[in-house]
Design a protein around this nucleic acid. Structure first.
Lengths: 202, 202
DNA sequence: GCAGCTAAATGAACAGCGTTCAATATATTT
DNA sequence: AAATATATTGAACGCTGTTCATTTAGCTGC
C-alpha cells in the first residue's frame, strides 16, 4: 500500500470525482456512499478524508463538476441554434438545455440542490467560481435580447434562471403542482418570454 | 410493555409527527434520525415501522403536515390583506407567505423538496390531497385577478407557483444565482406581475 | 376473579454508514 | 544502505434504518 507515484493528488481527486459521479447518478444522494466510491476507485475508506476532508467535501467536488457538464450542454445547445437565428430561438435553446441536463441526469441534478453543507462548512471560492459559469452563459444571452439601455441585466437574468429552475424543480421532484401540466418546459419558456417582453426584449 | 390505551393509533401517529417536526426543524433532513424521534416520543425504535412502515413513511407524514402549516400561513396572510384591498396586494400577500414559511422554517421547507421516496414507494393519495391544498389557495386567488374568459387558469396558477418556488429555492439553498440579489422576493413578485399582466390580469 | 387470547410495544441483532488515527508500506533524501 | 518523510491503509467507534422473536397490557368469555 501507499502507491504514491500512481497518480498526482489532482489526478486522484479527479478519479474519485469520476467514480463518485457514476455512483451518484445511479443511486442518488440519499443512498450515496463514500465507502462505495472509494471501493470503485480501488482505494480505501480513509482516502476520501485525505483528499476531500470528508464525504461532504467529495460531494461538493462532484456537484461542481456537474455544473461544468451542465454549462457545456448549454453551450452546445446555443452553438446548435446558431448565431444568426431569431434571438427568441437562443432563449428557447437555453431553457431546453436547462431541462435537458435535469432530465438526462435527474439524480445528479437533484443532488446539486439537495446537498447542503454542514453548519461550519462554506463553499470554497474555487467551487463558487466553477458554478458561476452557468449563470454567466445565461446573463450574456439575456443581455443581447434586451435593449442596450436596459438596467440591471444581471439581476433580471438570474431571476429568469430562478423562473426556469422552479419549473424544472417541480418536474424532477414530481411535485404536486405540475403533475397535470403536459408541458412544463413550455410553461417555463412562456413565463420567461412574458418577462422579457415586459422589459422591452426581442 | 404495550400501553395500548395511552393513545389511539392516530394519536400516536400525531405524536410522532409532532416530535419529528421539532427534530427535523432543528437538525435538517441530512441529520434527521428516526431513532431520535422515537426516543423523544418515549417509544422504542420499532414503533416507527409499526406506525409508518419506515422512516421514509414518517418523513412523508411530517412533510404533509408542513404543507398544512404552510397553507394556514398563506390563509392568514390573505385574511390580513383583507377582501377589499387592491387585487395586487393579495398576490403580494401570497408571495410573502410563500417566502415566510421557507424563511421561518428553512429546514422544514428544504426537507419537503429534498426528501425523495425510495424507488417502489408512491405518495399515498391521502398525502397528495393534503398537499394539494396549498396550490388550491393560489389557484383561487389567481382566478379572481384574471379576466373571466381567461383560459387554463389552473395551469397558469401552478406555473406561477413554480416561478415563486424557483426564487425561494435559490434563497434557501444559498444558491449561486441569487447571492447578490438584494430582494429575491421582490424579484419573484415582479416576474409574477409581468406574467399576470401578459394574461390580462389586474 | 381468572384464564386465555390478541395485539401493541419492545429491543437485540444485523448490515451499512462516515470519521478517526495508529500502523504500514513506499518514495525520497542523506 | 540507512534514515526520513509521506501516501495509504483498515480496524475501531458510534451512529443509522430495518427486522422480528419476545414480552406485556388490555380485552373476552367463563
Amino acid at each position: 500500500m501507499g502507491r504514491r507515484s500512481d497518480h498526482t493528488r489532482e489526478e486522484l481527486r479527479a478519479l474519485f470525482v469520476a467514480h463518485g459521479h457514476a455512483h451518484l447518478g445511479e443511486v442518488g444522494l440519499a443512498r450515496f456512499s463514500g465507502r462505495e466510491v472509494a471501493k470503485r476507485a480501488g482505494y480505501s475508506v480513509g482516502t476520501i478524508a485525505n483528499l476531500f476532508g470528508s464525504v461532504d467535501g467529495l460531494l461538493v467536488a462532484i456537484n461542481s463538476r456537474s455544473f461544468e457538464i451542465w454549462a457545456d450542454l448549454l453551450r452546445e445547445r446555443l452553438a446548435a441554434a446558431g448565431l444568426d437565428c431569431p434571438a427568441a430561438d437562443r432563449i428557447a435553446a437555453l431553457v431546453d438545455g436547462y431541462f435537458a441536463f435535469a432530465e438526462r441526469q435527474p439524480e445528479l441534478w437533484s443532488a446539486i440542490y439537495a446537498h447542503r453543507l454542514p453548519d461550519g462548512m462554506a463553499l470554497p471560492e474555487d467551487d463558487r467560481e466553477r458554478r458561476a459559469g452557468l449563470t454567466r452563459i445565461v446573463e450574456d444571452e439575456i443581455r443581447t435580447v434586451l435593449p442596450d439601455d436596459a438596467p440591471d441585466v444581471p439581476r433580471l437574468a438570474r431571476s429568469l434562471v430562478a423562473v426556469v429552475h422552479g419549473h424544472c424543480s417541480f418536474v424532477v421532484t414530481g411535485s404536486f403542482a405540475l403533475l397535470e401540466e403536459p408541458d412544463p418546459k413550455g410553461a417555463a419558456l412562456a413565463r420567461v418570454r412574458e418577462s422579457l417582453a415586459a422589459h422591452g426584449g426581442q
